[in-house]
Amino acid sequence: MLKEISRKNAVHIMLVYTGGCNGCDIEVVNAVMSPFYDLEQYKVMLTWNPREADILAVTGPVTRKMEPALKEIYAAIPEPKLVAAIGTCAIIGGPYANLGGDLGSSDQIVGGVNKVIPVDAYIPGCPPRPEDILQAVASVIPILAGKR
């Protein structure tokens, strides 16, 4: 009872950029930091410490160099935790995994975030609008509250 209410009322979100093109990053920053969208009024607060976080927002395709870091960061977050993959690159790897000329698609990226860590929410768009990000974050909070 208190558990669900408290989880609904205070959520910490952590951002990890895994090497995307910045487009999603700035829209996430817009959603989190700009007074226009202001994620904090929905009881979601920004943190940079994995130990404090509940939701891990990942943008960009996971590059090979970022893969171990992302895994470690995910492991550092105590349960219950959710992962939101923001943007097409974070979902399926975007153009880097799916487009290619003579040499095929890029082998510098592992692919979407779900190839590295389990993902709970997918927010498509290139980049998604801040409104979409707000809506998605607001809609995963009940899932977080319902966890063990």
Binding site: L2, I5, S6, N9, A10, V11, H12, P78
Partner: peptide, 9 residues
């Protein structure tokens, strides 16, 4: 609420 949330983690 943040206090209680962290208690339940």
């Amino acid at each position: 609420w943040a206090f209680f949330k962290f208690l339940y983690k």
